[in-house]
């Protein structure tokens, strides 16, 4: 019997064969006493091991065992609390409502040079910290750039 046949026999025992192969091996087992003997040996080993894992107990007292674990984990940061979607919604919903309210109440356009120090220009934000001064900062979020223009005239 070659090694491939032996491994096939084992796979049959472990239920790892496809239906067609299972039938073939079953027929082979019926005809071949050597295959049956090897199968019986493999099956016997599996049978005596199943449910008979040697009982092993921790050889140190539980308190000592835990003490080292505790020391290690308290020396490092604890796991970040996990948030569920429900928890996120509880935070995001009121914030969204407030944001919407603010957006509705604020004037849509603020002309440069008027009372407001913030103006919107084609989606870009132009901000003058001192309306009557010659210093203007310009920030484009989409481009990720900022300019500071200083007019000394």
């Amino acid at each position: 019997m070659n090694i491939d046949s032996q491994l096939k026999l084992q796979a049959y025992l472990d239920g790892e064969l496809k239906a067609g192969q299972t039938r073939q091996v079953a027929e082979w087992l019926d005809k071949d006493p050597e295959a049956r003997a090897l199968f019986a040996e493999l099956q016997h080993t599996t049978t005596i091991m199943t449910g008979n894992e040697p009982p092993v107990k921790l050889p140190v007292p539980g308190e000592f065992f835990w003490a080292r674990i505790e020391r290690e984990i308290t020396a490092r940061p604890s796991p970040r609390p996990r948030y569920s979607w429900a928890q996120w919604w509880r935070v995001l919903l009121p914030l969204g409502a407030v944001g919407l309210l603010v957006a509705l109440l604020l004037p849509r356009d603020a002309a440069p040079g008027k009372a407001s120090s913030v103006a919107t220009l084609k989606g870009m934000e132009v901000e003058t910290y001192l309306p009557n001064s010659q210093v203007i900062t310009f920030r484009s979020e989409s481009e990720g750039v900022s300019f500071v223009w200083v007019d000394t005239r």
Partner: peptide
């Protein structure tokens, strides 16, 4: 509870399963 940072809950998990985990390592 432990995921929220509860160390006592984690200690209880250790107490429950320390033998099984040790047994696997020993085997």
């Amino acid at each position: 509870e432990a995921q929220g940072g509860g160390l006592n809950a984690f200690e209880e998990l250790v107490a429950r399963h320390r033998d099984k985990v040790y047994a696997r390592a020993f085997t």
